[in-house]
Simulated assay, not measured.
Amino acid sequence: MSAKPGERPGRAARGDRRRRAVRAGRWAAELREAYQAWLDERAGLPGADTTPALFFNHRGGRLSVRGASDVFAAILDRAALDDDAPAHVLRHTFATVMIRGGADLVVVADLLGHARLDQTRRYTLPTAADRRRAVELLPTDR
């Protein structure tokens, strides 16, 4: 992601697909304020004047996937969570919450940048509670 004001993210992490910008709805103002606060703080950090990346490492270079994973692990550690979840779990949580909340599978696939619905369908796997509710829908003799 670029940190230049007014510029939208260019390429996705995988391949050359473009990600869509999404309006944040009721959180737009709060997100805009948080983003601007980060840009203001970022401006005073080493590397801010040489790296267009939105997030960067302690040496002022672009934050790598491994670096982002380390940051996520540190947050889990500080929160005293006994969990070794990878940062990618955030992406899975986003998709699962959207789908379980009733969002259309095609829309979720688009937000995730998936080229095929099969890539998104993995988030729709039924839970034990889903199976129980389905069985309860069966008519019974009383």
Rank of each mutant, 00 (worst) to 15 (best):
R142I: 09
A29N: 11
L138P: 01
I75K: 08
L125A: 14
S64R: 04
D83F: 04
P86M: 07
V135A: 14
N57S: 09
Y123H: 02
A79Y: 00
G44Q: 12
R78M: 08
L105S: 02
R142K: 15
G102K: 09
R26Q: 15
V22D: 01
S69K: 10
V71H: 06
L54I: 00
R18P: 00
I99V: 15
D130W: 04
D40G: 10
T50G: 13
R32K: 11
R62K: 15
L111R: 06
G15M: 04
M98H: 09
V89W: 12
Y123T: 02
V89M: 09
G25P: 03
A29D: 15
R19K: 11
L31Y: 09
V108P: 00
D104G: 13
A43W: 00
F72E: 00
I75F: 08
R14C: 04
R23C: 09
R59S: 12
A103G: 04
L112M: 11
H58P: 13
T50Q: 14
L76S: 05
L81V: 13
D40I: 03
G25D: 08
V71K: 07
E7D: 08
A109I: 01
G102F: 05
R19C: 11
R11L: 14
E136F: 00
R66L: 11
V107F: 04
I99K: 04
R122P: 04
A29C: 04
A37C: 08
A21N: 08
W38T: 02
R116F: 14
A95H: 04
T127F: 02
D49L: 12
A24E: 15
A24H: 14
A37F: 05
F55L: 07
P46L: 12
A48R: 03
A53H: 02
R62W: 09
H92N: 12
P139E: 13
A21D: 11
L112Q: 05
Q119V: 09
F94E: 02
R66F: 07
E7T: 05
A28H: 14
A109H: 02
P126E: 07
D118P: 04
R133W: 07
D83Y: 03
V135W: 06
R78C: 08
F55I: 00
T127D: 01
D118F: 06
G44V: 03
S69M: 14
Y123R: 07
R26G: 10
H58R: 15
L76Y: 00
R100E: 10
R78K: 14
W38A: 06
L117M: 12
H58K: 15
F94P: 03
V65K: 15
T51G: 06
R32M: 10
T50C: 07
R91D: 06
L117Y: 11
A85I: 03
V106I: 12
L63P: 00
P5K: 09
T120N: 05
L138S: 13
L125P: 03
M1N: 05
D16G: 12
I75S: 10
H58V: 14
R17N: 07
H92A: 13
T127W: 03
T124F: 04
A95S: 07
P52Q: 11
A85P: 01
E136S: 08
F56A: 01
A53M: 02
G47N: 06
P5F: 03
A80Q: 12
A85K: 08
G113T: 00
V65E: 15
R20Y: 05
G6E: 10
G101M: 02
L105V: 09
K4Y: 14
L63E: 04
R14S: 09
F94Q: 05
P126W: 05
